[in-house]
Amino acid sequence: MLKDITLGQFFPGDTLVHRLDPRTKLLLVTVFIVALFTAAGWMGYGLCVLAFAGCTALSKIRLRAFFKGLKPMIFIIVLTALLNLFYTRGTPILPGWIITWEGIGRAVKMVLRILLLVMGTFLLTYTTSPMALTDGLELLLNPLKKLRLPIHEMTLMMSMALRFIPTLIEETDRIMSAQRARGADFETGGLVRRAKALLPILVPLIVSSFNRAYDLATAMESRCYHGGEGRSRMKQLKLAGIDLAALAVGAAFLALAFILKKYGV
């Protein structure tokens, strides 16, 4: 069960999408999300689907990987579809029915929007290593440091969190086995019972996380960590020709999305 977590999962590869600078990819995903929320008519949505399909094809990531990541979202997607389907006024598809043509249209658009939103960000995390991602984020947000926002600290926390996911999963497995060996039962019973059964896992997990955090802080200090000031990097990010080209395509895509919006198609 715990092995199924796809959050932040990275599939190494050497495609055009993998080679793009993380900053470029972050910007392109932002552009994609803006376009997605601009889209009003079918042409607008079609454009977004095309863009996503194109990038996915270039990245050689299999569609199955996306479906796996979408599983936890099924409930929200179905709920959105049903609400839009039943609560949109307009022309009924058959006289006397609640379901309207407008409702079907809106339901499809909303589901598309959620799907593309989630899958678009998946494409980013699937093709970018967590380290590159946090590095890119820090560099992109760098100007905000002038406003005294703790950008370095925030991105460092993010990369630490990602680093410790496998460690904490291992630890959870260990604690669960230990509790099982003493007769704990995590699989049967109602929701409340199962939630209660999780408590003896969470308490030791949290306690040990605090110990880990303390050890980690000492180890970081021992390795001369003193905040982001005066830090350098071994791997320098450089914007290459393909990044500029990709950004140009992204800009054109956004412009097209706005034009389609203006004409309402």
Binding site: P130, M131, R163, L216, M220, R223, C224, R231, S232, M234
Partner: peptide, 15 residues
């Protein structure tokens, strides 16, 4: 501290 061996070793000299 890092997700890749060499990035972890680079932590101290980066600091």
């Amino acid at each position: 501290v890092a997700n890749v061996v060499e990035d972890d070793v680079a932590f101290a000299p980066e600091n």
